[in-house]
Design a protein around this nucleic acid. Structure first.
Lengths: 135, 135
DNA sequence: TAAATCTGTAACAATAAACAGAACAGTTAT
DNA sequence: ATAACTGTTCTGTTTATTGTTACAGATTTA
């Protein structure tokens, strides 16, 4: 799995701490310690999901699109996840095998149930409560 | 994320269906549609976690180490997971930044809480109940 | 309007992870 | 002894992820 959730949480925490100031991708990148372009890509995604807004030009940057108390950690999970979170094999199971023929269907069901439980748990935390954990 | 959980679930379902017969890695590989060596690697891992047993030599193969009703899906998750399941960024956050300095510690806490909820949910299903979903 | 400072995005390179396959030693049944 | 397996290592290939450069466009400030 990749680190998009962790990076987005890091970015959003910084924005929550900035409290209404426009924060540049260079500043975010130096805290996360990755390339500013990668930060902008993540910001682009978070923007599409309605979690942040950005302003171009001089004195530009990004900030939260709504109060940190209204952003749940599950929103971040949903914004950054890609595909089945428990993993999928990229090979196509043997359709001539009774198990291979149905395995993906049943795994999907299992994944959905598991993911719902996970989302519910993550929904208990907001970005605000998370960012308050920092000194 | 990789597909080790999915592959292990597939393998274990086949073994559950085999009901006490020794099943060869070639047979498992042809259903999963991956290389037999990869299957044996997964079997090696499942064996180390006490979920399957194997027998070498002619007429050898693998079978479940205990009844399918005593293998929970969470056991498979725990056997196949590697590292933080929500993903970690491989870069080291800036230690001079108040957020960067602490982000990993707080993410770890968050992950642990989320993972506990996930494991509890997955613990509700056994390999037996899963394999009964197949026609 | 010109310069400075940002974002947005595309294109490509570099790196890391996952997977495939060959090879072969060791084990067991017949 | 032979055949049919597992267990493991090694190496190559493919795929996914991350890094970098480059540059157009937006906005503020002077």
């Amino acid at each position: 799995m990749n680190g998009r959730f962790a990076i987005s949480m890091h970015i959003l925490t910084l924005l929550a701490k900035a409290n209404g100031e426009w924060v540049t991708s260079d500043f975010l990148a130096s805290s996360v310690n990755i390339n500013p372009v990668l930060v902008r890509k993540e910001l682009s995604n978070l923007r599409n999901k309605g979690l942040v807004i950005s302003r171009e030009g001089k004195n530009g940057g990004s900030m939260l699109a709504k109060p940190a108390s209204q952003i749940r950690v599950s929103d971040v999970f949903l914004a950054t996840r890609q595909g089945a979170f428990l993993g999928t094999s990229r090979n196509i199971p043997n359709p001539d095998c009774p198990v291979g023929k149905q395995i993906n269907k049943h795994l999907d069901t299992l994944y959905e149930e598991a993911e719902n439980a996970l989302i519910q748990q993550l929904g208990d935390s907001t970005l605000d409560s998370f960012s308050r954990r920092f000194d």
